[in-house]
Structure formats: structure tokens, C-alpha cells
């Protein structure tokens, strides 16, 4: 807790109101160190509109690159007359961009609910823990980060490659794809989507306890020989006697141990398949 008491505060404002270069992408780049670079930091990113790409690298600073797109109000791109309040002109308030706060080794990047695309490409020290949220405007991608990953999306995919396997990822409309060349086995791995496939690649020797749930039309495909313990929970709704229909619900939940069991893995989709692949 001491870390939090010694608050080393770094606040950086990234203003995206760049000189008008209409149609062209202008990139803003900023590097922010964690207050205690000797320890694993935590990065929290919360966007409404924009893809998030995070890549681990052999360095100490967090490097944020953002692509500001045409939606930014600039003097050269005069605002259309407000239709909401005819006759009045809207003022472009300063601070339409991104905000980066760092305190106690926790870095927060937030974006106001801005019209424009605030997609970010971020490089972080390898052991950084991540908490990433976005709603629209592209995918969440994480590569080569060994810290814990908590990613949530609404309209887009989540793709995670190389890491420790301590992941909680969730989207509503999109795939969740994850592949690991090793599992550290300590923290759980949970991949959840509503409309989309869950696609997980594990090393051949991975030790895991799997719980996989699908609904509706989905199927489960696996490269691994699984010792399956429960399968196909069926419930029958026979309502013909009261002029209803007959329906067989098959909710498939498969619980299986991989190589004798180990890391807790939950895979869950409503409309979609589950693919369990063996790393080649």
C-alpha cells in the first residue's frame, strides 16, 4: 500500500486537435514511464470508439500512439451550424483528446465519448497488467504481454497472442481468439462471447481444467484428446399437450481435464463454436 501513499503523479494531456490535414492520419506519440519502473505496472485503457493494440516490448516506458481522424474540430474545418440550436455555433472545447494519468504504478488512459476514432497503439513493458475496455471502432489486440489481461469489448474481436495465460476476455459481438505458447497455470483463463467463436490455441503439453459451454447451434472442436466428464445437458420442453411446441434444448457444457488438469479455463459462447487448437 505504500506505493499508493507515495503518489508520484504524472498527468499528460494529449490533445488531438492537430493542424488540419484533412483525410490524412496524423499520429500523436507520447511516452510515459511508470512511477516505479522496477515493479510490474498496471495499465487501464477505457475507450468508447477505437481499437486498442497493446504490444509488450523490452523497455520501461509506456508508449502511446494515437491516430486522430477527420472528426476532430479544428479552425480549418469549421463546424457546421448547430442544428440543435439554430443560429448558434458550437465551440470546440479543449481537451477533446486522450488523457493519461499515472499514480502508484497504475496508468489510466481515458477518452471522452468523442465522435472521432481514438484508436490506440500502445507498447508496454513485458510484465505489465492490462485492463482494456472499448465499445466500437475495431478490435482489441494484445501481444507478448505476460501480466494479467482483462479485456472487454462490445462490437469487435479480442485477439490475444503470447502471454502467461492469465486472461479474462469478454465481447458481445465478435470472436475471442487467444493463443499461448506456454501457460503459467496460476491464474484462471476465461474467454466469453455472445455472438462469435471462441478460438483457443494451447501448447501440446498444457495442463488445464476446461469448462466449455455452447448454446444454440454451436459445436466444440478440439485437436486435443480430452477426457470428457460431463456432456450435453438436455432439457425437453414438451408443450404439445397445451398446444405448444416440442423442443429439445441441448445446452452443451463440457468439462474436461487436459494433460491431467491444471489451470482453470472457461470458454463460453452463445451463438458460435468453440475451437480448441494444439500449437504447432
Amino acid at each position: 500500500m505504500n506505493i499508493y501513499k507515495k503518489i508520484a503523479l504524472v498527468v499528460v494531456f494529449l490533445f488531438l486537435a492537430l493542424p488540419a490535414l484533412r483525410g490524412e492520419e496524423a499520429a500523436e506519440r507520447v511516452a510515459v514511464p511508470f512511477s516505479d519502473p522496477g515493479k510490474a505496472g498496471r495499465l487501464e485503457v477505457s475507450l468508447i470508439n477505437g481499437a486498442i493494440t497493446v504490444i509488450g516490448y523490452e523497455g520501461k516506458e509506456v508508449i502511446v500512439e494515437s491516430k486522430a481522424q477527420a472528426q476532430v474540430v479544428t479552425p480549418a474545418a469549421p463546424e457546421k451550424p448547430s442544428s440543435k440550436y439554430p443560429g448558434m455555433k458550437r465551440l470546440a472545447a479543449a481537451g477533446g483528446g486522450l488523457r493519461v494519468d499515472e499514480a502508484g504504478n497504475v496508468m489510466k488512459i481515458t477518452s471522452p465519448p468523442w465522435k472521432g476514432d481514438t484508436s490506440l497503439a500502445i507498447r508496454v513493458p513485458l510484465n505489465t497488467s492490462l485492463e482494456l475496455h472499448t465499445v466500437n471502432g475495431g478490435d482489441i489486440r494484445v501481444e507478448n504481454v505476460s501480466g494479467e489481461i482483462d479485456a472487454s469489448h462490445v462490437n469487435g474481436d479480442i485477439v490475444i497472442a503470447r502471454g502467461s495465460g492469465a486472461v479474462a476476455a469478454h465481447t458481445v459481438n465478435g470472436k475471442v481468439v487467444a493463443s499461448f505458447s506456454r501457460l503459467d497455470g496460476k491464474k484462471p483463463l476465461s474467454l466469453v462471447t455472445f455472438n462469435g467463436d471462441v478460438d483457443l490455441t494451447l501448447p501440446a503439453a498444457a495442463k488445464a481444467n476446461l469448462k466449455m459451454s455452447i448454446n444454440n447451434e454451436g459445436e466444440i472442436y478440439s485437436d486435443f484428446e480430452l477426457a470428457v466428464q460431463t456432456e450435453n445437458v438436455r432439457s425437453v420442453e414438451d408443450e404439445r399437450y397445451r398446444h405448444g411446441r416440442y423442443r429439445l434444448n441441448i445446452e452443451k457444457t463440457v468439462v474436461a481435464a487436459l494433460n491431467g488438469g491444471g489451470q482453470e479455463i472457461t470458454l463460453n459462447t452463445f451463438n458460435g463454436d468453440i475451437l480448441l487448437r494444439k500449437a504447432k
Binding site: 497488467s129 492469465a166 486472461v167 479474462a168
Partner: peptide
């Protein structure tokens, strides 16, 4: 604060 710890 970590979601994976809460899962645990």
C-alpha cells in the same frame, strides 16, 4: 483489482 484474481 485484477479480474483473474477475482475469478480465482
Amino acid at each position: 483489482p485484477s479480474a483473474t484474481a477475482r475469478l480465482q
